[in-house]
Nucleic acid binder design. Structure first.
Length: 655
RNA sequence: GCCGACAUAGCUCAGGGGUAGAGCAACUGAUUCGUAAUCAGUAGGUCCUCGGUUCAAUUCCGAGUGUCGGCACCA
């Protein structure tokens, strides 16, 4: 005699067990038609599930966000059926719902071609039109394995074999076709609707392991209605429009070419942008008590052997030598061993700790060819790298200070929020558990201190210590790990770093590897996409263009240009014999934030007409006013901020 | 690295077994114009590289390189 509580709090009493469909029916035919699945005591289940005990039920209709998952999951099943109807020699493997859509991985001799997609899509529409009911059945484990093996579905058989003994093996039938599935599903294939589209084919390893077979994956996107689908497709187009590779070309920021795959040719404007960011980072670091250094690119292999990189990282290192010398060098893949050389160069006192050593040093890593991506994943890059040499007791305080600094930077650069991942001890690691306990504890304590919530990334820490990762999301919805802070007990040990403590004895410092932007290259890529090339004035590579309307205004335009230069603004004068419309259009396409238009009137009155990117309005003001205004606007956000860490000789006063 | 697609003028792209075409940009000339394309003319190519097939390859085939979409990787 179940009593069923509805979301509005009302309770309905039933005589004996009822299915979800029966409950929906009893409430009304409209709901019965609309309900795709239900949340039974908070768990999403099929409408056919029997309710025996007192329960709470919420029906999921197409109006609910939860319907998206169901539609996508069912679409994946329909896709698999369509593929097997069209291509009988294909094995099915797995096909989950994902963000914005679904995919299904198939095993077959010939991978699918893009041309196959419309045909498969057509078949999917047929299957949806057939409106086949999804019927759940429980199959004994052995029978299920036998069944799938008999049907040549070896991947499915392997999946079942690897399911824990406790797991119920459920099968969903849809007409003549069936698939191993945990569920839940909607009522029929018809519930999938028509707001879906197959988007691409791709290769993917079986079970995500590169040692396994390569499967053929088909991706699709699915939504509740056509309007949602169209909105999503439009969103994809907009994301493509702000792709950093495209904007980099449009704004003439950089290029890449075959002879230096994975290394960037920065053009004048791109380099200005780069320097604007680097100058900003240098100012921030000074305020936070960092010292900047510069260390060699090419370093003898003996240092890499000592640091352990030769053993652990050699495949990713560029090795160099010359004919006449019997030595091997490597281009540095990271700065840390060199920083320890500076630390070790003199006798260090505990009074110098924490010692924050920063470097914008170019690092080279041989990334796999398939990993390269515009300027975001390259083989030659510059990290906003720094290493903090400190005592174990200082880890928490330094971490808190770092998170504070990182938040400030992200905010200044237009990112309001970021996610934090905490990676703790991996299975294979250096150091004893007591040390790990302390290291992890220090990071957690720091997060708490600065009120930062993190998700646990279990076992993903570096072999030498736990780490925090700071993740930003770009305009195309991709996540990029930018900031990081890693605790390292091992490298100071390997490279024999030490300081003299209060007790006059030698002690081993702890090292914190940390970066905020990650690398300039990647971060600039993200920044370009974030702002769609429309940078705030202080970052913009080309801040102002002075454009003339008639040649009579040329000498005045030169005067305006000179005055802007004198204020330190980056400006160009466009005196070409072109119509003002053409000039406005060209500079707008170049994302120049401010165009100062000068014609006869402005020349006579010593004024300028300010036109801003994105706006159609123009504002006329005196040249002096305009200069003051722009100068103020072009001020980087950190100007005028006080130092956070006051450095004094041999003394650190944390402010 | 793996699966697939792609590589033609500075850019965006069309074409196709008989050594190539558009628009924009560039250059020249005319035009002096008020807020997102003034008009006309000229010039511009090792059709990614190396092999093979063919009387003939930029086109077909193979290999390589790079790029793109995924997967794996990102200490």
């Amino acid at each position: 005699m179940p009593a069923i509580t509805m979301p509005d709090g009302s309770v309905r009493q039933y005589e004996g067990a009822v299915t979800g469909s029966m409950v929906a029916e009893s409430i009304g035919p409209g709901l019965a038609r609309a309900a795709l699945a239900m949340e039974l005591n908070g768990k999403l289940v099929d409408m056919s599930v029997e309710i025996v005990d007192d329960s709470s039920v919420k029906f999921i209709t197409r109006k609910d966000e939860e319907a998206l998952f169901l539609i996508r999951h069912d679409a994946a099943h329909v896709l698999a059926q369509a593929v097997q109807e069209l291509f009988p020699n294909t094995q099915v493997t797995i096909g989950p719902a994902i963000e914005n859509g679904f995919y299904y991985d198939f095993a077959r001799e010939e991978p699918f071609k893009p041309e196959d997609l419309p045909i498969i899509e057509q078949k999917m529409h047929e299957i949806i039109a057939r409106n086949e009911p999804f019927i759940r059945q429980v199959m004994p484990r052995d029978e299920a394995i036998r069944y799938f093996k008999a049907h040549g579905e070896h991947y499915k058989a392997e999946l079942i074999q690897d399911l824990p003994e406790s797991e119920t093996i459920s099968i969903y039938e849809q007409g003549p076709w069936l698939d191993l599935c945990r569920g839940p599903h909607m009522r029929t294939t018809g519930d999938v609707g028509n707001a879906f589209k197959l988007t691409r084919v791709a290769g993917a390893y079986w079970r995500g392991d590169s040692r396994n077979a390569m499967l053929s994956r088909i991706y699709g996107t699915a939504w509740r209605d056509r309007k949602e689908l169209d909105a999503y497709l439009t969103q994809l187009e907009e994301a493509a429009r702000r792709d950093h590779r495209r904007i980099g070309k449009e704004m003439d920021l950089f290029h890449l070419q075959e002879e230096a795959a994975g290394s960037i040719f920065w053009h004048p404007k791109g380099w200005r942008l780069y320097n604007n960011l680097q100058n900003y980072m240098q100012r921030i670091q000074r305020r936070y008590g960092y010292e900047e250094v510069r260390t060699p690119q090419l370093v003898d292999r003996s240092l890499w052997e000592a640091s352990g990189h030769w053993e652990k990282f050699k495949e990713n290192m560029f090795i160099a030598s010359v004919e006449d010398e019997d030595r091997t060098y490597a281009l540095k893949p990271m700065n840390c061993p060199c920083h320890i050389q500076i630390f070790n160069h003199t006798l260090r006192s505990y009074r110098e700790l924490p010692l924050r050593m920063a470097e914008f040093g170019a690092c080279h890593r041989f990334e796999p060819s398939g990993a390269l991506h515009g300027i975001m994943r390259v083989r030659s890059f510059v990290q906003d790298d720094a290493h903090i040499f400190c005592t174990e007791d200082q880890i928490t305080q330094e971490t808190a200070l770092f998170v504070h600094m990182l938040s400030e930077v992200y905010k200044d650069l237009g990112f309001e929020s970021f996610r934090v991942k905490f990676s703790d001890r991996p299975a294979v690691r250096a150091g004893d558990d007591a040390t790990w306990d302390r290291a992890e504890g220090s990071l957690k304590k720091a997060c708490k201190q600065v009120n930062v919530e993190y998700e646990l990334n279990k076992g993903e820490g570096a072999f030498y210590g736990p780490k925090l990762e700071f993740v930003l999301r770009d305009a195309i919805g991709r996540d990029w790990q930018c900031g990081t802070l890693q605790v390292d007990y091992v490298l100071p040990e390997r490279l024999n770093a030490s300081y003299i403590g209060e007790d006059s004895a030698r002690h081993r410092p702890v090292m914190l590897h940390r970066a905020i932007l990650g690398s300039f290259e990647r971060f600039l890529g993200i920044l370009i996409e974030q702002h769609a090339g429309h940078f705030p004035l202080w970052l913009a590579p080309q801040q102002v263009v002075v454009a003339t309307i008639v040649s009579d205004a040329e000498s005045y335009a030169q005067e305006v240009f000179d005055r802007l230069i004198a204020e330190g603004l980056s400006v160009e004068a466009d005196l070409r014999n072109e119509k003002i419309n053409a000039k406005i259009r060209e500079h707008s396409l170049q994302h120049v934030p401010v165009i100062l238009v000068v014609g006869r009137k402005e020349a006579e009155n010593k004024t300028v007409a300010i036109r801003r990117l994105g706006g159609a309005a123009q504002e006329i003001m005196s040249l002096d006013e305009a200069l003051q205004l722009l100068k103020k606007e072009a001020l980087p956000p950190d100007f005028g901020r006080h130092s956070i860490v006051k450095k004094q000789l041999n003394l650190n006063c944390e402010g």
